[in-house]
Amino acid sequence: MKVYELLQELNPHKLNDLCKAHRCLVNGLIDTAGKLRTKNLGIVKGSEVAHIAPGGNMVKGLLGDLFDYIKNENDLILIKSCVFHYELEFIHPFIDGNGRMGRLWQTLILIQQYPALEYLPAETLIKNKQEEYYNVLAISDKSGNSTPFIEFMLAIILEALKRVLPSQNKSVTKDDRISIFRDKMKKEDFGRKEYLKNFKNISQATASRDLN
């Protein structure tokens, strides 16, 4: 399943969907794909223990609290997405693939309110700043405060926006839209409803003309 297709199916407020996404992303890579860890876990870098995750018997309860926060708190979505990303890394609920899941779930949380953020190259920007990414995680861990990580991720989002926004000033033609959407849907059938979900800035009449 493609990441784009996966994002359309997932609910950011459901723990079961987190496990489903993990199963899809790491299936065949590890034996415990989609399963929360039940054993204790330490993360070693070089000859040092970089992080000791909460005990395996605490994982489900901590995730429950984290999902309650995302669902019920009134913090800005931007902040909540960063907090979830950091806390998921801290809890380390899976044996492997936690970084990918943190980044995926932050995107999923953001696009509930800001659909355009789905297309920001945040994953690429983090990859280019991987050392800084892990350093700021360690700083937040040692200080017991997620603020350094939140600030880092907000800066990443801002940089991504600065890269993308200039290209948005170019006019997009009907053929451009059709080509973009066909590429996303591959061989899947689609109609005006799916098309409008993707291009929220066009009218129903424009969508109909495009598809005709």
Score class of each variant (00 low, 15 high):
residue 31 D to S: 10
residue 32 T to C: 00
residue 32 T to Q: 06
residue 32 T to A: 00
residue 32 T to D: 09
residue 34 G to N: 03
residue 37 R to I: 05
residue 39 K to T: 05
residue 40 N to H: 09
residue 43 I to K: 00
residue 43 I to D: 04
residue 44 V to R: 14
residue 45 K to P: 05
residue 46 G to I: 15
residue 46 G to R: 11
residue 46 G to C: 11
residue 47 S to Q: 15
residue 48 E to Y: 13
residue 48 E to M: 09
residue 49 V to F: 04
residue 49 V to T: 15
residue 49 V to L: 15
residue 50 A to Q: 11
residue 51 H to V: 06
residue 51 H to P: 06
residue 53 A to L: 04
residue 53 A to T: 06
residue 53 A to G: 01
residue 54 P to S: 03
residue 54 P to L: 02
residue 55 G to D: 04
residue 56 G to M: 01
residue 56 G to P: 01
residue 57 N to L: 10
residue 57 N to K: 10
residue 57 N to S: 13
residue 58 M to E: 14
residue 58 M to S: 07
residue 59 V to E: 06
residue 59 V to N: 01
residue 61 G to R: 09
residue 62 L to K: 13
residue 63 L to S: 01
residue 64 G to K: 07
residue 65 D to Q: 12
residue 65 D to N: 14
residue 66 L to I: 03
residue 67 F to Y: 11
residue 67 F to D: 02
residue 70 I to K: 08
residue 70 I to V: 15
residue 70 I to D: 14
residue 72 N to G: 02
residue 72 N to P: 02
residue 74 N to Y: 08
residue 76 L to G: 13
residue 76 L to D: 15
residue 78 L to T: 15
residue 79 I to F: 13
residue 79 I to R: 11
residue 79 I to D: 11
residue 80 K to M: 10
residue 81 S to L: 06
residue 82 C to R: 04
residue 82 C to K: 05
residue 82 C to V: 00
residue 82 C to A: 15
residue 83 V to R: 07
residue 83 V to P: 09
residue 83 V to F: 12
residue 84 F to Y: 11
residue 85 H to Q: 10
residue 86 Y to K: 03
residue 86 Y to N: 05
residue 86 Y to C: 05
residue 86 Y to F: 15
residue 88 L to W: 04
residue 88 L to N: 09
residue 89 E to D: 02
residue 89 E to N: 04
residue 90 F to P: 06
residue 90 F to S: 06
residue 93 P to S: 01
residue 93 P to I: 03
residue 93 P to N: 04
residue 93 P to T: 03
residue 94 F to C: 04
residue 95 I to K: 06
residue 96 D to W: 00
residue 97 G to Y: 02
residue 97 G to Q: 01
residue 98 N to Y: 00
residue 99 G to K: 08
residue 99 G to M: 10
residue 100 R to L: 13
residue 100 R to N: 13
residue 102 G to R: 02
residue 105 W to D: 03
residue 106 Q to Y: 03
residue 106 Q to T: 08
residue 106 Q to N: 13
residue 106 Q to S: 15
residue 106 Q to L: 06
residue 107 T to I: 14
residue 109 I to H: 07
residue 110 L to F: 09
residue 110 L to H: 11
residue 113 Q to R: 14
residue 113 Q to W: 08
residue 114 Y to W: 09
residue 114 Y to M: 12
residue 116 A to N: 10
residue 116 A to D: 15
residue 117 L to P: 04
residue 117 L to R: 00
residue 118 E to F: 11
residue 118 E to Y: 11
residue 119 Y to L: 05
residue 119 Y to D: 11
residue 120 L to S: 08
residue 121 P to G: 13
residue 121 P to I: 12
residue 121 P to A: 14
residue 121 P to E: 11
residue 122 A to K: 10
